[in-house]
Amino acid sequence: MNLELTVTQQALKEEFSHFVEAELQPYANDYDKQGAIPMALIQKLGAQGYLGATIPTHYGGRGMDQLSYGLLNEEIGKACSSTRSLITVHSSLTAETLLRCGSKAQKEKWLPLLATGNKLAAFGLSEPTAGSDTTSIKTSYLETEDGYLLNGVKKWITFAQIADLLVIIATGEQGITAFLVERNTPGLTIQPIDGILGTRASMLGEIHLKDCLVPAENILGKKGWGLPQVVNTALDNGRYSVACGSLGIARACLEDSIHYAKNRVQFGQLLKDHQLIKQKITNMVTEVKAATLLCRNAGYLRDKKDPNSIIQTSIAKYYASRIANTIAGDAVQLHGALGCHDSMSVQRYFRDAKVMEIIEGTTEIQQILIADHSIASLSSIL
C-alpha cells in the first residue's frame, strides 16, 4: 500500500500550511484567551472552501478526498484546535452526515449554504446526563398533526453559540431519531458555556428545547434509526477529523520543542545536546511518525469506502489523541517554566490535547471498540 501523497494532495497540504501560517497561527493564543474565534476568520475559511472541504462540487464544496481532508485537519490542528473543532462539527459531524443520510430536498437546501459557510452547523448529541452512553439521552420528541415537539437539554455542543442549523438527537415512541432544527425555531434557546479546559475558543453552548415544533420533513435519516444511521456515521466522520487534528497538535509540540532545544542553553550547552532531551525528541518523532501512518491509512481506506475504515479510524483516533497528550506533556516539561505561561503555545496544546481524548468517543470507548473488533476478527485489523 502506497501512502505517499499525490501531487494534488501535496499541493493542497502546502496551501493549507500557507493559510494557517498567515491567518491562524499568529492569533490562535489570542482566540484562546478571548474564548471565541472571530467571524472574519470563519468567513475566510468559507471563502477558501474549507468549511465545505468534502462536500461535492455540485453543492458548492471543494470535493476533497478523505486523505486531503485529513491533511486540512492536521494543518489547522497544528495551529488552533478550536478552529479545527469548527471544521469537525460543521463539516464532519453535520455536512458529511447530511450528505449521506439526508433527503434530496434537505441536501439541496442545506449543503450549498454549509459549503460556503453562509450557514454554520452544530451537532446536538451530548446531554447533562448522557455522554458516552448515547442510549440514555432524555431529549424527547412527540409526534403531532403539525410535526414533532422537541423537549430537552443538550450540553457541551461545539459552536452552538453561533450555529444556524442544529442536528438534535431525541428519543420517542418510534425510537431514537435525528432532527434538523433551525436556530430561529420558537422554544429554542442557547446558553454559552465558559470555563472549559481546552479548545476554549470553540464557543460551546447548552441548548434548551421547550416545545420546539419541527416539521416532519426535518427528520434526518429514517425515523427510529438515529443511533445506527446518523450518530454512528457522524461519530465515525468526527473521529477521523479529531485523529488528524490530534496529529497536528503532536507535530506542533515536536516542532516547537526542537526549535527551543536548538536555542536554549543550560549547564553550558544547548538543550539539544543533553542526552535526556535527545530521548524526549526521539520518542516524539517516533510517535508522530506512527500516528501519521495510522491517520493516512484511515484516510486511504475511507477513500476506498473499505468497511475496515471504521475500525481503522478508531485506532487512529485512539493512538493520535493519546500521543498528543504524551508529547504535549513532554513539550511543556522541556520548555520548563516558560512552557507553563500563556505566552507560549505549548501550554495551549497541552490543554487542547486532553480534550482530544474525550470528544468523539473517549479513549475508553475506543478501547472497547478496538478490543471487541480484535477478539472477533484480529486479522481484519492487522
Rank of each mutant, 00 (worst) to 15 (best):
M1P: 00
E4F: 04
Q9A: 14
L12K: 09
A28M: 07
Y31P: 13
D32I: 10
K33D: 15
I37M: 11
P38R: 05
I42T: 10
L45S: 02
L45M: 12
G46E: 06
Y50V: 05
P56Q: 10
P56V: 04
G60S: 06
G61A: 05
G70F: 05
L71D: 05
N73M: 15
K78F: 03
C80M: 02
S82A: 15
T83E: 08
S91L: 15
A95W: 15
K104E: 13
A105I: 05
K107L: 05
E108N: 12
K109Y: 15
L111V: 03
T116I: 04
S126I: 03
D133R: 04
S136F: 01
T144M: 08
E145Q: 06
L150P: 04
N151K: 06
V153I: 15
T158K: 03
T158D: 11
T158M: 07
F159L: 09
L165N: 00
I168Y: 08
I169H: 06
A170N: 09
A170K: 08
G172T: 06
G175P: 07
A178F: 06
T185K: 05
G187I: 00
L188V: 00
T189C: 00
S202I: 06
M203E: 15
D211C: 08
N218H: 15
L220C: 00
K222I: 00
G224W: 09
L227N: 10
R239N: 10
G245A: 11
A250H: 08
A250Y: 11
R251K: 14
A252V: 01
D256L: 02
D256R: 02
S257F: 02
H259Q: 08
K262A: 06
R264C: 13
R264Q: 14
V265Q: 07
Q266Y: 13
Q269Y: 06
L271Y: 15
K272I: 15
D273C: 00
Q275W: 10
K278G: 05
K280G: 01
T282H: 07
M284Q: 06
V285C: 07
T286K: 12
A290R: 13
L294E: 07
L294D: 10
R296S: 08
A298W: 11
Y300K: 05
D306R: 01
P307I: 04
P307C: 03
I311D: 03
Q312P: 00
S314K: 08
S314E: 10
Y318K: 01
Y318G: 00
Y319M: 01
A320T: 07
I323Y: 05
I327P: 04
A328Q: 02
A328P: 02
G329S: 09
D330W: 07
D330M: 13
D330T: 01
V332P: 04
V332W: 13
Q333I: 02
H335Y: 11
C340F: 08
D342Y: 08
M344K: 06
R348I: 12
Y349K: 11
A353K: 01
M356T: 14
M356Y: 12
G361N: 13
T362M: 11
I368K: 13
D372L: 12
H373G: 00
S374T: 13
I375L: 14
I375D: 11
L378A: 13
S379K: 14
L382E: 12
